[in-house]
Amino acid sequence: MRVWRQLTDFIARHGSAALITVHDVKGSAPREAGAHMVVRPDGAFHGTIGGGQLEFRMLDIAREMLDSGLRPARIVDQALGPDLGQCCGGRVKILIETFDRRDMEALAPLVEAEAAGGLFEVECRLEEGRVKREFSSAVGDDRWTGWRETHGERLTPVLLFGAGHVARALVLALAPLPFAVRWLDDREGAFPSHIPSNAHAVRLWDPEAEIAAADPGSFVLVMTHDHPLDMAITAAALKRDFPYVGLIGSATKRARFEKRFRETGVDEARIRALVCPIGIPGIADKDPAVIAASVTAQLLQLRERASLGRNLSPPADTNDT
């Protein structure tokens, strides 16, 4: 969720909004420090701090602050077990702030930084009861007393070749998740009229150039309308050290492709790294939405495991051929 964009949108439409942030966590808690909710005056909201009694209580406080026009920020300290009867057993501090149109100018740089993509850090301090956020570094300045917040998202790049039924379902499945999809197809009119904001549809002219220009951390998925094109794209992708190269198809398709890859000199270790069939193990349903869900789960596993230095789980049993 783009927190600052959502906050300013609510202010523009409704006159005010509240920001609820998990400020600090000790022990087990439903969400990590830095999780956010943005709340409208009528109680509608985006985001979550974990649900349950904690979330309900913080929503009530935020609405009370909005209704009363209270400007000072509030930090609420909650022991999840004794105070709320939640089983997590940890302790959290929740920061609740209210904003209105007077704050739009101060919020604009945060909206801009968020829109630029990636992660950014701000330094925060309480000033006359309000949280002041600054980009300028105060590291080493003994006069600075406060805390730091990290905002934005680290998006994993995905190259998706093909715009058929499975690819369309996959783009929708990835829409709310931390991926940036470059969606490629060589056919005119192949893409739907509405595409999620984290996907960029591109007419494919030169597959090898796309592979060569891709970020080395990209996940590559190949599911075009044409098997020779699938083979050419996959071979090019395997010649680079991408963390994931996935090819839609059955074990039979994989065997045929592997034979050709060996004939053309693709490294054996890279051939073994190919994920085909794609998706998590144990799901045999070939419905496009099911395949998309399975592949999305696999990409999320890989994204998490890559950050921990682990290997990818084994491929699934079957896909469309």
Rank of each mutant, 00 (worst) to 15 (best):
P72I: 00
P82R: 11
F56R: 07
H151R: 06
G162D: 13
W205G: 09
E127F: 07
V122A: 10
L170I: 00
R5S: 10
A106G: 11
D206G: 00
G118A: 01
L229M: 12
A269N: 08
R74D: 09
E121P: 05
S16L: 05
V76A: 14
G246Q: 03
P243H: 11
A213T: 12
S137Q: 12
P109F: 10
D142N: 11
L170Q: 11
D206Q: 00
F56N: 04
I291L: 13
L247V: 09
C87I: 15
G249Y: 02
A18T: 10
A235G: 04
I248W: 08
R154S: 13
R5I: 08
C87K: 08
A73G: 02
L204V: 04
E134C: 05
G47V: 07
A214I: 12
E153L: 09
V131F: 01
N198M: 02
I11S: 02
I211V: 12
L119H: 12
A199S: 11
A284R: 14
V92Y: 06
S16A: 15
V25S: 03
I280M: 12
G129A: 05
A44M: 10
L66P: 03
H227K: 08
V111W: 10
I248N: 05
A17K: 02
D185I: 00
M1W: 05
L66I: 14
D185M: 10
F56D: 03
V38H: 04
I195F: 11
A180V: 14
R31E: 01
V122Y: 04
A213Y: 00
L238D: 03
D320V: 00
L274C: 06
A251P: 06
S193D: 15
R13L: 15
V22W: 03
I20E: 03
G15Y: 14
K132Q: 10
L229A: 09
A62V: 15
I278E: 02
G69D: 07
Q301N: 15
R168I: 00
E97Y: 03
P157M: 00
G164L: 15
T264F: 15
R272L: 09
H194W: 04
K93P: 02
R148P: 01
V171M: 12
L177M: 07
V111F: 12
R91Y: 10
L274G: 03
A73C: 07
L302M: 11
E55K: 09
G282W: 13
S313W: 10
A209T: 13
F135V: 11
T98V: 08
A237W: 04
V166D: 06
R272A: 14
T224L: 08
V220L: 07
D230M: 01
W147D: 08
P82E: 10
P288M: 10
R125G: 01
D60C: 06
F56C: 03
G309Y: 05
R133Q: 09
K286E: 12
V295G: 03
R203E: 01
M37E: 07
P281Y: 06
A289F: 02
D317W: 11
Q298Y: 04
D42K: 02
W144A: 12
E123N: 14
A212Q: 00
D241G: 05
L184W: 01
R310G: 15
D267H: 13
E114M: 08
A306D: 09
E304R: 14
N311H: 13
A273V: 14
T224P: 08
T48Y: 01
E153D: 06
L299K: 03
R310F: 15
P228G: 07
I75S: 02
A284K: 14
